[in-house]
């Protein structure tokens, strides 16, 4: 009984043979809709910050340096590759690529920084509040315009209003020469 069951097991094992992949020596491409390293297309990005508002890991930061200049930073070291940013992007500016071999000696290699020129509305420049009914804003409760790029921290505000105190507080943090580094 014992011996026959062992002999049967030998056949069970022998049939599939060796299945180990020679992975690092032979490349193993990921399937087409794999959620790998996200890629930002700065030509398409309109700087709405929807990705930052939906990022569960808070890896996308948005900071307005002035009325016209918005900096967006993607901190790849904290990313969970859920692909939520690519889902919500209204302009399809974000794609999840199939690259997954991201091990690196420097964090900066997997970060991405974009400086976007934001046009101001010719009439009064304050009409953004009227768009508060759109889906992205309704879902969010974080003020994504005043994030601390230096501390790599999202600055949460729980109101829709511009919080002057909070803004002043983050203003005082010393900025490096080049934003996002």
């Amino acid at each position: 009984m014992w011996l026959t069951s062992k002999i049967k097991q030998v056949f069970m094992v022998a049939k599939p043979g060796v299945v180990t992949l020679r992975y690092p020596f032979e490349p193993r491409p990921a399937p087409p809709n794999f959620r790998g390293q996200p890629y930002w297309d700065h030509h398409k990005c309109i700087g709405c910050g929807g990705c930052a508002a939906h990022c569960p890991a808070r890896t996308i930061l948005v900071r307005d340096l002035c009325q016209e200049l918005r900096v967006m930073v993607y901190d790849g070291s904290r990313c969970t590759y859920c692909g939520r940013c690519a889902d919500v992007c209204p302009e399809d500016a974000i794609t999840m690529t199939s690259s997954y071999e991201l091990a690196t000696g420097s964090k900066e290699d997997i970060n991405e920084t974009m400086e976007l020129f934001m046009a101001t509305c010719q009439r009064c420049g304050r009409c953004y509040d009227h768009e508060i009914t759109n889906a992205i804003d309704r879902m969010s409760r974080i003020g994504f315009k005043y994030d601390s790029l230096e501390m790599r921290a999202v600055v949460p505000v729980s109101s829709e209003q511009f919080d002057m105190k909070l803004y002043e507080k983050t203003e005082k943090i010393k900025r490096p020469e080049k934003a996002g580094e």
């Binding site: 094992v13 859920c82 692909g83």
Partner: peptide, 29 residues
């Protein structure tokens, strides 16, 4: 360990299937 090796061998195609459906082998999201 025969059971260990064989059941994990059978399991691997399921993980790859998950990767093809959702984009990741385990955290489907």
């Amino acid at each position: 360990d025969t059971v260990f090796m064989q059941s994990w061998r059978i399991r691997e195609p399921i993980m790859w299937l998950g990767e093809r459906i959702t984009g990741n082998r385990k955290t489907y999201g």
